[in-house]
Structures are given as structure tokens and as C-alpha cells.
Nucleic acid binder design. Structure first.
Lengths: 346, 346
DNA sequence: ATGAAAGCGCTAACAG
DNA sequence: CTGTTAGCGCTTTCAT
């Protein structure tokens, strides 16, 4: 087994083919300025020797690595996994590879990852989910490497991003509940300190209540961590403290399904006694009974569009707007009673 | 905004600190052979200049990139996402970054990805899920870069891998169904041509039947694609053609949950009329009602152990066995009637 | 269309 | 403990 084979370089190929390194480089890079005959000759030698270009050397010489860094909160989260798939597919399409790393939303880890990625000379950076602090801004603005945020936004609009209008989406979800006639609609959210997801979704809920003249009640609010268990617990408490509650908007599908089950376990019928609507529309929503109604976030598209946007920056193409909001759609299924919904987007 | 800042190199630091490049290199790499005073001086300059080592140059010079390539079937699949998390965590622990790419189990794509990863000079390769063909073997054996398979195995045992004993696990799951007293236990599997997952899981099922003297019936077998819908469809057909069926083993949780719902929709009670057991034990299993019993595959651990094993190879440490089988555990929940199970592993 | 040569930024002997 | 000096393998002017 040829484990010991000497690494063969562009020089070897050049030598063997009787041409210069420059020529080999040209054919490897598809430069048209090579006589077909020589090209063929070189290609043959390449094949015969099993030459494999060294991308690291190439990167050093050309200052392009065709690699982009992706900082993500947690790949084992269905939401981000799907988003990453979108990123990777487009990256592949444009011949980029991605270096993936999980931040768990920890600020210092994020910063450190970005630093490492920059050291590795990535051509671009995709930053997902986390909040943008001054420290982030500083490091981003000090590098020539383009950065695009995905599934989050930069209030100062200094950085390009692609996401959906979370406030509007949450508002609409809550509005739907209101239109079903509920007077007590609860909210199961994420941390309000999470300005990326937690707070906007909460805001949308509040705005909807206001628009419908339903009194906002602190007691109808429960906060979790977006996971199933916390949704279950939240719903249980809600039902215990305010049995008159008949609808709830959850800021994530996992929490919504948790809520669903809590209600079922407490003898409530969904959607007869209680309407539940979730957020994200991950596969889970269509894999439980009753089927969960949910705000459909185009995760794959967010990733794909963000990556596409990044390629434009990397190619120094002109970009009209760096801030893009993708459309979301509300999937009304079995956990709510309303079956149709048409709202004017402003 | 300093976007235009000239890239500052190790030379600049050396010059500014009044030392040689070698010394700067030493402090950057934590080489102890540097007088504390000089170290401090250099460190100060580094900070002041905002010097960031160029990992590409370093990689070229040292022939180590501290990057490993990961070829995965599909990151948006919960199973692989969790596995990847295990990989990444251990990689981080050992200061490696990972380049992730999806193969969708397409042979040529796999091969091409491996090629690209090798061009990028990864220090190691983690290959997930796919079958190992001659072409794979050829390229793997021709490179000095260590390769570890995760969640799949190499029948020829030429390559190291970490996985679980799928045949045994499937057999045990089926055995449980048998011990509940069922005489007609169905099987909802993946493609039998899939020698990594589909076939072994089918084999285990058959072996169990044999051991229990239950006749194997072609009609009780349905094949899907591991996804929810195919499980639903399979169960529906099973119930229509063989209404006497009272138990089914599904080769994936998604299919199992699909089966569960199909049974429910057809008026069966689970587990009173029908026992269902899945495979993988992904979060979904604990997020449906009734809670799904499932063969627990330690996905995170498989990833973590595989990565750990890879680090050993990369460090040229001695490795006892390159073939590791991790333990699985069977989670008996609400979709089966048996609540305890103790089987002697051979 | 092709070649020569100067780097890219860093590591790794080797001296001292 | 520190400096010198070759490269690492490739791209990229600049000539020819």
C-alpha cells in the first residue's frame, strides 16, 4: 500500500512534462493561455503521477482559500442544522468549503472562534444567531474579510444580514389566536435578554395583543429555553395558575409541542380547549398529533441566501442592500382552529 | 474603520520588537526556550500591532493544518447533526477545526469531497455513513492522512471505525417484541442495499425471529427511506394487508413515529393493539405521544470517540484496536408493553 | 504561449 | 536563549 509515497509537487509535474511550473499552474487553474497540445501533455502527466494540488500553498500564494468560516450556536439544533445545509449547498455551488464551529452562544467563544477562523484566512465569515456586541463589531470592522449574519440582525445596520421579520411574524401568529376569539392568550418565550430571538418574538406578541385590545397580563407569560421540557413545564404552570387560558403562542416548536403535551396530560383537548401555535416549523411540527400550527421560518433559504450574499461580497460585486428579510409563512394545522388566514403585510 | 490596514506579519513584529522572526515564532507557539523578558516584549508588540498569525503560511511550513475533514451524508438529519456535535466538541478540545461537507450518500460526491479535503491538506478525515467501495479504499490507502469511519464499518477491517453492533441491537429490539408475546411482528426498514444501516437492521430482525421460532414472512416487511412519511405509508399498508399484526420494529425513529400515527389513524391503540419500537432514539422519540420505545444509539459518543481516535492516529500514538463498538441501550417507553429487559450480550 | 524568478508568511533545523 | 537561513508548494508579474 503506497502510504509512503513522496508528495508530488507542481515542480515534479513540470519537470516530467518538460514545461515550466507556470504552465502547469495554468492548466491546473484552467487558464486558457495554454496550447491545447501542452495542456494535454501536462494533464497526462498529472494523471499519471497522481498529482494533487496543495491548496494550502495555493492559498498562501494567492491569498484566497476558497473556505468560509461558519459560526453557529449549535449544530445539533434542528433549526441551525437546516440552515447550515442551506449554507453548505450554496457554498458547494460556488466551490467553497466551510469550516463549522459551535459557539453555544457564548460571547467569548464566539469571539475566539472568529479569531481562529480569521487566522485560517477564510475568505468570508457567516455568523449565526448571536447578538452583536461592541467586541464583535470591532473585530469585524478591522478585517477585510466580509461578514454576513444569518438568522439574526444588526440593529445598527452596519453589517449585512438575512433573516425574517420576527416581530411581525410573532405578531401575526398571535393575531391568529386573537381572531379565533380567545381572550386569554398566553406566551411561552425564550429569554427576553436574547435580543435576537427571545425579545422580538415577545414584542410581536405584545403588539398583537395591543392591536386587538386584549389586556397584556404578566401572569400569562412564561419563559423557557426553547426546548421541549421547558415548554411542557411552562404550559403546566400556565394551566395551573390560569385555567381560563385558551390559547398560547410558543416561541419555538419544541416548546409548543411540550405545551401541547402538557395540555393533553392535564385533560385539555387541543384545539378544542386550547389553541397552540409554534415558531420555526421544524419537521417535528408535522410529526406530532395533533399536527402543530407554526410560523414557518425558511431556515434553508436563510442559509442559502446568506451564503449567496457572502459570495457577492467576496467577489467584490456590487450589492444593493445588505439587509434582507425573507418571507415567512404561517402553517395552520391541527393545533389551532382557524384554517385560513390572510393578513396584509405592511 | 481600519478595513484597509496592511496585513502585519511575523516580520513586522520581529522588527518592531527588535528580535528575530524565530523568536516571535517561538513565543507565538509557546516554545519555552524564550527568556521571560523577551517573551513579554514580543507579546506586547503583538498586542499593540494586533498581529494575527497566518495559519495558512504556518500550515505550509509545518505541514500541519490543525484541520480535519468531515464527510457526512446530511447535516440536516438529526442523527448526523448530533454525531457532528460530538466530533466538533472533541475536535475543539484538541484544537482542531473541522471542514464539513454533505455527501447525500452519493459515491462520486463522496470521492470528490475526499479529494478536495485532501487538497486542503487536512490532518485527518472522518468519513460518515457511506459504504466503502474499492475507489474509497484506493484513495484512503494512497494517502498518509489518517481516516476514521464513524457510524459505519469496514467489513474488511482495513480501516478504523466506531459504531454500534447494529445486527445485535436490531435483534434485541425484535426479541423484546417477541417477549411481549407477539406472533406477527412486522419490520419497516431502509433499503436492503444499504449495507451500512438498512441491511444489518434487517438481518437482526430476521435473526431474532429465528431464535424465537417465529416464522419469517415476506409480507410483514416494508421498506422505506427512514423518513416519517415512508414509515406512515408502510404501517398503513401493513395494517391493511395483515390486520393481525400486533408489533412492528422500525429501522428509524422517524419511520417508527410515522408508523405510530398510521396505527392511531387506523383506530389502533398503541401499545394495547400494537407495539412499536424504533431505532436511534433521537429527541423526537421523547416528543411524541405515546413516547416511543427505541434502540438508543449513542450518536454524540460515536462522533466524539471517532474524533478522539483520529487524534491518536494524527499524533501517531499507538492504537490498540481501530475497530470500536460502542454500547447501545434500549429505551422502553410507552409504545411497547414490556417495561424491563435484560439480555445477555455475548 | 511559455518561462524565470520573486515572493506569500511561517517553521525548523542549525549555529552560536 | 536567540538569530540565520532554507525551504514549504504554489501564484503571479514580467519578459520573451
Amino acid at each position: 500500500m503506497g502510504k509512503k509515497k513522496e508528495t508530488i509537487t507542481i515542480y515534479d509535474v513540470a519537470h516530467e512534462a518538460g514545461v515550466s511550473m507556470a504552465t502547469v499552474s495554468r492548466v491546473v487553474n484552467g487558464n486558457p493561455n495554454v496550447k491545447p497540445a501542452t495542456r494535454k501533455k501536462v494533464l497526462d502527466v498529472i494523471r499519471r503521477l497522481g498529482y494533487r494540488p496543495n491548496a494550502v500553498a495555493r492559498g498562501l500564494a494567492s491569498k484566497r482559500t476558497t473556505t468560509v468560516g461558519v459560526v453557529i450556536p449549535d449544530i445539533s439544533n434542528a433549526f441551525y442544522a437546516e440552515l447550515t445545509r442551506g449554507i453548505e449547498d450554496i457554498a458547494t455551488m460556488y466551490h467553497y468549503n466551510i469550516i463549522l464551529s459551535n459557539s453555544d452562544l457564548q460571547k467569548d467563544r464566539e469571539l475566539q472562534l472568529i479569531e481562529t477562523l480569521l487566522e485560517k484566512q477564510v475568505d468570508g465569515l457567516l455568523f449565526l444567531g448571536g447578538e452583536i456586541t461592541e467586541a464583535h463589531r470591532e473585530i469585524f470592522s478591522a478585517t477585510p474579510v466580509p461578514v454576513v449574519l444569518a438568522a439574526s440582525r444588526d440593529e445598527k445596520k452596519e453589517l449585512p444580514y438575512v433573516t425574517i421579520d420576527q416581530i411581525q411574524a410573532s405578531k401575526e401568529a398571535t393575531l391568529i389566536l386573537g381572531h379565533e376569539g380567545h381572550q386569554h392568550v398566553g406566551f411561552i418565550g425564550g429569554p427576553l435578554t436574547d435580543s435576537v430571538n427571545g425579545y422580538p418574538r415577545y414584542l410581536g406578541y405584545k403588539e398583537a395583543l395591543k392591536e386587538m385590545d386584549i389586556a397584556f397580563e404578566e401572569e400569562l407569560i412564561r419563559l423557557g429555553d426553547y426546548r421541549y421540557r421547558s415548554g411542557y413545564k411552562a404550559m403546566k404552570e400556565l394551566l395551573e395558575n390560569r385555567p381560563e387560558i385558551t390559547a398560547v403562542f410558543a416561541a419555538s416548536d419544541e416548546m409548543a409541542v411540550g405545551a401541547l403535551h402538557a395540555a393533553l396530560d392535564m385533560g385539555r383537548d387541543v384545539p378544542k380547549d386550547l389553541s397552540v401555535i409554534g415558531f420555526e416549523n421544524i419537521p417535528l411540527a408535522s410529526q406530532v398529533r395533533p399536527l402543530l400550527s407554526s410560523v414557518g421560518v425558511p431556515m434553508y433559504d436563510i442559509g442559502a441566501v446568506a451564503m449567496r450574499l457572502l459570495t457577492k461580497y467576496m467577489n467584490e460585486e456590487q450589492v444593493e442592500t445588505g439587509q434582507v428579510y425573507l418571507p415567512y409563512d404561517i402553517q395552520l394545522r391541527e393545533s389551532t382552529r382557524l384554517k385560513e388566514w390572510e393578513e396584509e403585510k405592511e
